[in-house]
């Protein structure tokens, strides 16, 4: 099944942001807690699926010379929609993610998928691709957020899970910790793939 293939590739083989090192800014910035990572991931997934669908539907109408401009307008429209919806229904998350919600527009993953996949494939395949990539991205963000939150504050999704003696390693939730944590995770993933290939 092609659809299943397009869906699952986003979950491991082309898992963003580890395999496709794209869209790193939100990955580093909002992953101070698992909940923020999850929220950001879902918002991005929503925009990704919608823009993939629309781009794929219009792929034969949009002249190739202005396709990037057209894609950007389509993506930006959905981002503004997400901004409005988040303000209306999950305001506290909206406050925490702040500037990174409008910045979904320039997340390279979304424009990248529109250009590399949706503009060449059918609607169903594009939705599968968007869903897979989006969920992969969400899982990565939640994992990274979870690790940083756990080590940095001793909590997970806001609940204390470490024993009372645990001294939080606050470095992890600060800016430098984001880079180093992501770097180490990336190395672990590389190591796992090298082992499974060998």
């Amino acid at each position: 099944m092609r659809i299943v293939q397009e869906f699952t590739k986003g979950l491991w083989n082309e898992l963003p942001p580890f395999r496709l090192v794209l869209g790193l800014c939100p990955v580093l910035a909002v992953t101070t807690a698992a909940k923020n990572g999850l929220g950001m991931g879902l918002a991005t997934t929503f925009v990704l699926i919608c823009s993939n669908t629309l781009v794929s539907m219009m792929r034969n109408i949009i002249p190739s010379k202005v396709r990037i401009a057209a894609f950007i307008v389509i993506i930006a429209t959905f981002v503004v929609a997400v901004e409005l919806l988040m303000q209306a229904y999950v305001y506290s998350l909206y406050q925490q993610l702040g500037i990174f919600i409008p910045l979904i527009v320039v997340n390279c993953i979304i424009l990248g998928r529109a250009e590399a996949f949706a503009s060449k494939n059918s609607v169903m395949l594009s939705i599968a691709d968007g869903l897979g990539m989006g969920l992969g991205f969400t899982a990565s963000l939640t994992l990274l957020g979870g690790i940083r939150e756990l080590i940095g504050t001793g909590q997970l999704f806001g609940f204390s899970v470490m024993s009372a003696h645990y001294e939080p390693f606050a470095f992890m939730v600060k800016a430098p910790g984001a880079f180093i944590c992501l770097g180490i995770l990336l190395a672990v993933m590389n190591y796992i793939s090298m082992q499974s290939k060998a």
Partner: peptide, 23 residues
């Protein structure tokens, strides 16, 4: 550089150390 760290991974760790200095 150890194989798994080659490329982007070591880049990120280095960026983290520069960020630490800027901190």
């Amino acid at each position: 550089i150890p194989k798994p760290f080659d490329g982007t991974a070591i880049g990120l760790v280095t960026a983290g150390l520069i960020a630490l200095a800027f901190y």
